[in-house]
Each structure stands twice: as structure tokens, then as C-alpha cells.
Design a protein around this nucleic acid. Structure first.
Length: 412
DNA sequence: AATCCACAGGAAGCCCGGGAAC
DNA sequence: GTTCCCGGGCTTCCTGTGGATT
């Protein structure tokens, strides 16, 4: 086989091929368009709450609710940017800090990050939390200024001692001489406040804004605006945007999902050397996104969870009865021995199974089988064959491909 | 009605690695 | 070096439980 002749210039061909996009960035989540359609009311509301900062009064704390992809983050960031800029123009020092609590999900980390924003040198671990707090306060209070702290995904903080932080931050003003601090909390979880201490509830939720999901029509407008920027003219047919919008609307009106869908559709079409996006491309893109999400979720699982998942797959492949925690644990123990890995306790395994359930990889429900005890009934929620391959791709699990479960004893 | 299975799932605390301070 | 703090994964110990079976 003559590799050289058949493949030389392979990149040339790919480069000269005319792409359908003119600016793919416009479809990314990080892209902030000049206008945010269907969020005018929320923008106005948030702006009026924060406006006092420009008169050097402390704005109320705000809680913003809404499901993912409803524009909470983008609107808040947008307002904060405007606020800082206006502040600069007027000579009023306003600074805003954005923190995503999914990453910084403990009180220490939140404080450390905040302190760092103000130039304090705080190690990412090591100090007592009080000290970090003190250092943060000192840095903030160094000059007369208004500070708005944007805590995204604030719901991720509760239960990890993060409530304490929220409480401290909402009352830090009483300990400050010069600066003023306000908090904007952004939560995906509508019932978030239920888990909070009532003292925090009242101080954090002085103002509340709810972002409702976009409907299909609104998603269309958003997509249209972005498609205009992202694609070359004539690429996006009449039906493309309504279809993408409709598919995304089924996922609780998630604009991010809609944008992903549009982008991936374009990529699929491009790869097939098509000149316009067709319905088939969109359907394919939709499946691809779903599959990619699962694969990514499985691939990044910790080893023990992978092993558990593998156990479930083996049991499922044997067919027959429903799978219970005890059975999974048995198989899991064998796999561990085979790979000479530590065996976790059943208690821990039970938690791991629940985690897999939350990730949507498994489906587990607690059932009582009367005399035969109470257990979780476990079902796989992903295609077994594909996922099995993903798991076997992990170096640590390589040897599993040859592992065989002993046949079940007869009569059982 | 009482029993009892096969776990669920809460509470507390251990251990470890990372790091600072002394 | 020793001693302290933090967070995360994990174990130990525990109490709770729905309903088939006795």
C-alpha cells in the first residue's frame, strides 16, 4: 500500500474545503452577544437593584434562580460589566468578582479566591479559614469602594460548610469601615433556599429574580441572532432554526443546548461536505451530543466507580433478573481481586451507586422485597456495548476484557 | 401480629495528602 | 523538623424499614 501517494496533501484538502462557518465563536457559551433577546425585563430589574452602587450606597443582595441555559450567568456578567464601566466613568469605584462555586465549592476556597482577587497572597490550602477571612476583609477594606460578588451555582456550596461563608459574606459590611459588599447568588436549583438557614435566607434573598426557561419561539430568536453571526449566508435553511429550537425546548428550554446543537449540526454538515445544513445533520448532531455527554461522563469516572459500572454491565449481559446492590457488590469484589485493587465497603459502594444514578448513567430505585429484604434495583441507563469499550479503554481496567463471570449455579 | 431479610442511609470519626507556620 | 489546618474519600457503627413469610 502506498501511503504517501494516497495521503499526501491530506491537510491541504481539509484546509481548502470551504467551511460553512464564518465565526464559530458566536455559538460558544462564552460568547456574549451585544443584545440578549427576551431578557430585557430581567436586565432592567437587576440593573435597578444594583444601581445604588453608583451612588455609593450598598445594593441589596440578590438571589437569581433559573434552570441551566436560561441566561442567568450571561445577564449577570453583562450587568456587572456595565456597572463597572459606568462606575469608572463617574469616578465611583465599583468592582465585581465572579466566582463559580462548582469549582470553588468550600468555604476555604471561596475565601481564598476572593482574597486573591484583591491581590492577597493566599495559598490554596494550609491557612486556618479565619485567617483567610481576615485577610480578605483587610484587602477589601483598604479603600472606599463598592464590591459586588457574583456567586454562580451557589447551591453547590450548601452542605459543605459553605452556608457559613454565605452568612459571613452577607454580614461582612458591619465589620468594614470603608468598603461595601453586596452579593449576587445564582442558583440552578429553585428550591435552594429551603436548604438554607433562615438567617441567611432573609439576608441573601433581599431581592429575588427568577429566570424562566425560554420557549421554542424565544430560542428561535436567540439562535437566529447567533446563526447570523456564525454561518455564511445561505447555509442555514428555513427549517433549521425552528428544529434546533424545538429539540432544545424539550430539554427545559436550555439555550446552551440549543447553541451546541446548531454548532454541532454545522460541524456534521461540514464534515460531510454538504453546502447547507439538513434535517439529517441536525438529528445526527443531537444524537452525537447525547452520546458524547455520556462517554465523557463515564470516561472521567473514578476507577472504583468504573469498576462498579462494569459489574453492572456484566450482570446485565447475563440477562435475566433485576440487579440488586448485593449482586453488584459480589461481582465488584471479584473484579477488584482480579485487578488487585482495594475493595471498598458495601456502605461506600451504595453511595457510589447513588452517584452513578445522579449522573444518569444508572437507574436505581429502592424497593422492598418483603421477606427478602430491602435493596436497590439497578438498571443500566446507557448502551452497554459502547460503554463497556469506554471502560476497557482505561489502562487500569485493561485486563477486564478477558474477565468472565462464573456461570450462575443452576436453579438460581 | 410478629418476625426477619437485605439492605438503605445517617453520624462520627479516621486517614491521608497538601500545605503553612513556627 | 514538628505541629497545625483543610478537604475528601473512606470505614465503622448504627438505626430504620416494607412487606412476604411464619
Amino acid at each position: 500500500m502506498d501511503l504517501k501517494s494516497s495521503f499526501s496533501g491530506i491537510f491541504d484538502a481539509l484546509l481548502t474545503k470551504e467551511p460553512l462557518f464564518k465565526n464559530k465563536e458566536a455559538l460558544r457559551h462564552s460568547y456574549t452577544p451585544a443584545e440578549l433577546p427576551h431578557r430585557e425585563a430581567e436586565i432592567k430589574q437587576l440593573a435597578s437593584i444594583l444601581a445604588p452602587a453608583l451612588r455609593f450606597e450598598t445594593p441589596s443582595n440578590v438571589l437569581i434562580y433559573g434552570k441551566s441555559g436560561t441566561g442567568k450567568t450571561i445577564v449577570s456578567k453583562f450587568i456587572c460589566k456595565e456597572l463597572t464601566e459606568t462606575g469608572n466613568k463617574l469616578g465611583v469605584p465599583v468592582s465585581t468578582i465572579y466566582l463559580n462555586c462548582e469549582v470553588t465549592d468550600t468555604k476555604y476556597r471561596v475565601l481564598a479566591n476572593l482574597a486573591k482577587e484583591f491581590g492577597e497572597n493566599v495559598p490554596f490550602t494550609g491557612w486556618p479559614t479565619d485567617k483567610v477571612y481576615a485577610s480578605f476583609k483587610e484587602a477589601v477594606d483598604a479603600k472606599k469602594q463598592c464590591i459586588i460578588i457574583l456567586l454562580d451555582e451557589i447551591d453547590k456550596l450548601v452542605g459543605k460548610g459553605g452556608d457559613e461563608i454565605i452568612y459571613n459574606l452577607t454580614r461582612v459590611n458591619s465589620e468594614l469601615q470603608n468598603a461595601r459588599v453586596s452579593i449576587i447568588g445564582i442558583s440552578n436549583d429553585l428550591k435552594f433556599t429551603n436548604y438554607l438557614d433562615s438567617r441567611i435566607q432573609s439576608s441573601l434573598g433581599e431581592e429575588e429574580i427568577v429566570f424562566s426557561p425560554y420557549n421554542a419561539k424565544q430560542l428561535e430568536d436567540i439562535l437566529r441572532q447567533r446563526a447570523e453571526l456564525a454561518f455564511k449566508p445561505g447555509v442555514v435553511g428555513e427549517f433549521v432554526i425552528p428544529l434546533c429550537a424545538a429539540l432544545a425546548a424539550r430539554e427545559h428550554g436550555d439555550a446552551r443546548r440549543a447553541l451546541d446543537l446548531l454548532r454541532v449540526s454545522g460541524e456534521v454538515a461540514e464534515r460531510e461536505n454538504a453546502e447547507i445544513i439538513t434535517e439529517a445533520h441536525i438529528r445526527k448532531a443531537n444524537e452525537k451530543i447525547e452520546a458524547d455527554n455520556i462517554v465523557e461522563a463515564v470516561r472521567t469516572l473514578p476507577t472504583q466507580s468504573k469498576l462498579l459500572l462494569y459489574s453492572v454491565i456484566l450482570l446485565e449481559e447475563m440477562g435475566g433478573r433485576v440487579i440488586t446492590t448485593g449482586e453488584v457488590y459480589d461481582v465488584y469484589k471479584r473484579l477488584c481481586r482480579q485487578l488487585s485493587l482495594d475493595v471498598l465497603t458495601q456502605r461506600r459502594v451504595s453511595d457510589l451507586i447513588s452517584e452513578l444514578d445522579m449522573l444518569g448513567i444508572l437507574n436505581s430505585s429502592v424497593v422492598s422485597k418483603g421477606r427478602y429484604g430491602r435493596t436497590k434495583e439497578i438498571k443500566l441507563d446507557v448502551p452497554p456495548v459502547g460503554i463497556r469499550l469506554v471502560l476497557e479503554d482505561d489502562i487500569r481496567l485493561k485486563n477486564l476484557a478477558t474477565f468472565k463471570l462464573p456461570q450462575r449455579r443452576l436453579g438460581e
